[in-house]
Computed example of a mutant assay.
Amino acid sequence: MAVNEGLSIGALAKRTGLAVSAIRYYEAQGLIAPWRNAGGQRRFDRADLRRLSFVMIAQQFGFTLPQIKAELDRLPGGRTPTKADWTRISEGFRAALDVRIATLNKLRDNLDGCIGCGCLSLEACALYNPIDQAGEKGPGPRYLMGDEPAA
């Protein structure tokens, strides 16, 4: 296939493993922008393979489509993104991933103890929560979210 012919939506689906409907959805969300050939058929650039792969990976890490779109919007238009372009946008996710990794490590290390949910259901809680002190810090598993129990 010549480079200027682009990829059909079917070829893109086959290559990425995504359903055609998913590709259309990502198009509607502005994550990819196909063009039309002389016959009016939707065509995609080869760079869209990488964009869709990035979308799939970023979603597995828990990023939302608006977050992903914001990063993809930083890629250049009119040319295939380079390794430097991808490195630059990956830095946008690095801090968020570091926070998630720290949270997962804390969850793993404290899974058998209290996570500060305020349930008061454990008689021998590793992080005793008298009078639901964790609940005063806000909703959710406060200690897992980074709050420290009262000394």
Rank of each mutant, 00 (worst) to 15 (best):
R94S: 14
T103V: 06
L52C: 13
P76I: 09
R15H: 09
Q133S: 11
C117A: 13
T64E: 10
K137E: 12
N37V: 04
V99N: 10
A33E: 15
A124H: 13
G116L: 00
Q59W: 05
G92Q: 01
Q133W: 08
R50A: 14
Q41C: 08
R51H: 15
I131R: 14
Y25P: 00
R74K: 15
L49R: 00
K106M: 01
T16D: 02
V99D: 15
N129V: 13
F44H: 02
E123A: 12
Q41I: 06
C119L: 08
A95R: 15
N37D: 15
D73G: 07
A28Q: 12
F93R: 01
S121T: 09
I101M: 08
F61K: 12
F54Y: 15
Q60L: 11
K83Q: 03
A96V: 04
G17E: 07
F93D: 03
E27D: 11
L104P: 01
A95N: 09
P81Q: 12
A19K: 15
K137R: 11
A126T: 15
W35S: 14
T103L: 14
R100P: 09
R36V: 05
N129P: 15
I32P: 03
G140L: 03
W86M: 03
A84H: 04
A124W: 05
T82G: 07
C114Q: 02
N110D: 13
D85M: 12
R51D: 11
L31Y: 01
T87A: 10
G135L: 13
S21W: 03
F61P: 02
K83F: 05
G118E: 03
D98I: 07
C125G: 04
A126E: 14
L144W: 03
E91Y: 06
E27R: 05
Q59V: 08
A102I: 09
L104S: 03
T64Q: 10
S90F: 09
P130Q: 14
L18T: 07
D109S: 11
G138N: 11
